[in-house]
């Protein structure tokens, strides 16, 4: 019995070195060959560094707005709302979001608003919106920025990510990428 305990302790030490140490260092080594040395995908905007995959809060009317977030896009503390589908408080909140959206975008019909634009994501850091969610914001942005509507429709089409290999999963738009491109339109 004592022998097993002693062997167990030694085996634990070896496994720790191997699985926590060597495995980690090996992956860390490969990371040096990955994009941006394994520090996350980066894009530059106005000379500032941005994480492409981390959703940002866009609440300003002149930008395509991102989805609601339970943690206000705090990338150091992700989280969802965890509200149940029948929770009356939650449903009232969604209703409120729809009404606010209709006030900010008076040309849009209620039935055109896609659900993702008025519900919070799981991580609170969703970098994407659906194509429909971008389309319903075009009229507002056209007015504020005073640019051609057709240009914006074109911009959305350009920035829509097709399903993986064209067949797997949904279509989506990276809001940050879209807004960076939007800022470039003169």
């Amino acid at each position: 019995m004592k022998k097993h305990i002693l062997s167990g302790i030694k085996l634990t030490a070896v496994c720790l070195v191997f699985f926590s140490g060597i495995y980690t260092l090996f992956i860390l080594g490969i990371a040096q060959m990955a994009p941006n040395q394994g520090k996350g995908e980066i894009v530059e905007a106005n000379g500032k560094k941005q994480y492409l995959n981390i959703g940002q809060s866009f609440t300003d009317g002149k930008y395509f707005n991102s989805r609601p977030s339970a943690v206000a896009y705090n990338a150091a503390g992700s989280g969802g709302s965890n509200k149940g589908p029948s929770n009356p408080e939650y449903l009232a909140e969604v209703k409120q979001r729809i009404d606010t959206f209709l006030i900010q975008n008076p040309e849009i019909k209620r039935s055109e608003i896609p659900a993702d634009l008025v519900t919070a994501s799981g991580s609170g850091l969703d970098p994407n919106i659906s194509a429909q969610a971008a389309k319903v914001q075009v009229k507002r942005i056209t007015k504020i920025r005073n640019i051609n509507e057709q240009k914006l429709v074109h911009l959305i089409a350009e920035n829509t990510d097709k399903p993986l290999l064209g067949v797997f999963g949904p279509e989506k738009i990276n809001v940050l990428q879209l807004n960076i491109a939007l800022d470039k339109i003169k």
């Binding site: 989805r67 969802g80 709302s81 965890n82 509200k83 589908p85 939650y90 729809i98 209620r110 039935s111 055109e112 608003i113 896609p114 659900a115 993702d116 008025v118 519900t119 919070a120 994501s121 799981g122 991580s123 969703d126 970098p127 994407n128 919106i129 659906s130 429909q132 999963g169 949904p170 989506k172």
Partner: peptide
């Protein structure tokens, strides 16, 4: 509203 992309609360668009 348009719920054609499903129950989106707590889900990621991607």
């Amino acid at each position: 509203i348009d719920t054609s992309n499903g129950a989106t609360e707590g889900k990621e668009v991607r």
